[in-house]
Design a protein around this nucleic acid. Structure first.
Lengths: 132, 132
DNA sequence: CCAGTACCTTACTTCAAAGACAGTACTTTC
DNA sequence: GAAAGTACTGTCTTTGAAGTAAGGTACTGG
């Protein structure tokens, strides 16, 4: 049976009529900065995870979304999938070298955001208080 | 008259019933890695831009989305809006110090993605060729 | 006085990402 | 022999982000 590839964030198609096709690198950027992509990459920096383990570690992620995210990252060569042919199934996910490079940068950004959250919150409060 | 604040990416609300409210830092991360947020931050690293100028520099962005993005980033304290009370209106947008910190990291990530695009493409080709 | 520029705001619409949930196949544990 | 774990796949539905389009204001140049 044909196993269809995941949706792969068909998010930004070329606008109809417009010749402006999104440069492919934007798509990869979308993948690594996606809602669950960020969390997966950061989590996998620590060590390889099994599917269910990763799901529990991230929490509040549906199986569907986690799989979709993992498949997208696998296709992009960022995540390695190691499926052992045993029963019950055992699948280990880990970062590739490429994935680690990406994960480091994503983590930097996430860490920065976390670190500067207070400044952001102050800016927001100031913005919201300003007469508009 | 009450001017409502922009949508501000109400994307990830706390799941109803779930105590798991998305940490606020995730929202900021969403803002800076958003479709137009990335482009705005990177563009503004070069120099301040006027609204129309920025729109033309980025291209293919609707006024609505550009304003929404700028307002979100302004509220987060990443972008400074300098509206001169002249006619016709002149508004200059620039990065704050906080914004520059964010922009540098975003640009790093974007540059990495661009640089490693070839490796990603190879991985994809391999993935797509693999018997599934 | 009409057209154009600059900087927005608002309303309407579309469509894909995400959630919910059921199903598969096989095994171990209660 | 029923339930639960494991790693998925598939479908249906919701929703909210982004696009389109139009309006508004206060001017200036022709």
């Amino acid at each position: 049976m044909a196993v269809s590839t995941p949706p792969l964030a068909p998010k930004y198609r070329a606008a109809s009529g417009m010749s402006e096709q999104l440069c492919p690198y934007r798509l990869v950027l979308e993948h690594v900065t996606s809602r669950w992509g960020v969390l997966v990459l950061i989590e996998l920096m620590e060590r390889p995870y099994r599917f269910g383990e990763l799901r529990r570690a991230i929490g509040r992620v549906s199986e569907k979304m986690l799989i979709q995210t993992l498949q997208t990252l696998e296709r992009d060569g960022l995540v390695h999938r190691d499926a052992k042919p045993v029963i019950p199934p055992r699948v280990d996910y880990s970062l590739t070298d490429l994935g680690r490079e990406a994960a480091e940068r994503v983590r930097d950004l996430a860490e920065w955001t976390h670190r500067r959250m207070e400044a952001v919150q102050e800016a927001r409060d100031a913005y919201d208080q300003r007469p508009r």
